[in-house]
Design a protein around this nucleic acid. Sequence first.
DNA 1: CAGGCGTGGGT
DNA 2: TACCCAAGCCT
Length: 351
Amino acid sequence: MPYRAPSAADLLAWYDRHRRDLPWRAAPGQARDPYRIWLSEVMLQQTTVAAVGPRYARFLARFPSVEALAAADWEEVAEEWAGLGYYARARNLHACARAVAAAGGFPSDTAGLSALPGIGRYTAAAVAAIAFDAPVVPVDGNVERVMARLHAVETPLPAAKARLSALAAAFMAEPAARARPGDFAQGLFDLGATLCTPRRPACALCPWQAGCAARAAGIAADLPRKAARRARPLRHGAHFLLTDEEGRILLRRRPARGLLGGMLELPGTPWRDEPWPEAEALPHAPLAAPWRRLPGVARHGFTHFELEMVLYAARHPGGPPPGGEWREPAAAAAAVPSVMRRLLALAAEAP
DNA sequence: CAGGCGTGGGT
DNA sequence: TACCCAAGCCT
C-alpha cells in the first residue's frame, strides 16, 4: 500500500461520514452549549459512553443549566451522581458550576477553564475545542492510543504522555484542523472508540491506515504499551442495616473528602486488611441492639482494593440515631454509591 | 511522579 | 474468574 501521510482533512472526511450520534453532540451547524459539553466531558472521565448516556439525560433534566446546578444543594447533586463513581467529580462539578454562574459564564480559553475545579488539561482542551472551536487538541486515552500507533511509539505509558501530546498537537498546524477544532477532536475520539480500539483494531477501515507506522510494522494491537499494574489488596468491613417499624433504612453521610466523600452509606466499621470478628464490629454499630448477622458476604471492587463486607441487621422503632436519617428502601438504593447497593442486595436475598 | 479515587462491561 | 478498560483530576 502506498504511503499517505495522516492528514486532518482525511480524518474530518471520515468523521463527517461516520460520526456517532451522541446525546451531548450538537447536530452539524447547530449551536453548542458549553454547559452541556462540560457536563458530558466530566461525566465521561474514565466512564464509558454506554454508562453515561442515560445518566446524562437524567442529570440534564434535573439541572438544565449551570445556574440551576449552582443553585442546587449538595445533597441533590450527590443523589443524582450516585452510582457513577469518582465522586470528587460531582463535588468539583458543583463547585465549578457555582464559580461559572457567579462569573456569568464559562471561560472560552484553556487557561481560564483549567483554573476551574475538576477541569484539568484534557477537559479544558475538550471544552475549548468543542464548545468554542479553540485551536487545541484534547488528549485522552483514545488520542494517546491513536498517536502511539500512528507513530509506532513503543515507550510505555505514562512516560510517553508528553510525546503523544506533542504528536496530537502537531495536527493543529493544518488549516483543515484549525477550521474545525471541535470536529477534529471528536473525530479522534470516534476513531479511537470505533476503529482504533484497544484490542483488535479495525485497521482495514481506518482513514489513516496508509500512514500508520504500527500497522506497517504489524504491532498496532500491541500499542500503546503500559507500565505493569500493582495487585489490589483485599480489605474487609462490617456494616449495619437498621430499619424502623415501617421498613425504612438508616443512612448516614460520609466525610466530605476522600473515598466516597460526601455520599450516603450504611453505617459500618472502617475498612481494613483483617476481617472483623463480631465482638470488634458491634461497637461500630449506630446503636446497641440485638444485631443478627445476615448470611453471605458482599464484594465490591474499587480501583485500588477489593472489599469484602459482612452485614448485620436490627430493627429500631422511633427516630433515627444521631447523625443518621431514614430512607425508604427504593430511595435508599437510588441515593447510595454502588458499593452500598451491594449490601442492600445482600439484605434483599437474606431470609 | 505515583498513588488515591468507582463502576460496569467485555474477554 | 480475573483481569482489562473507559472522553482524568488532584495531591
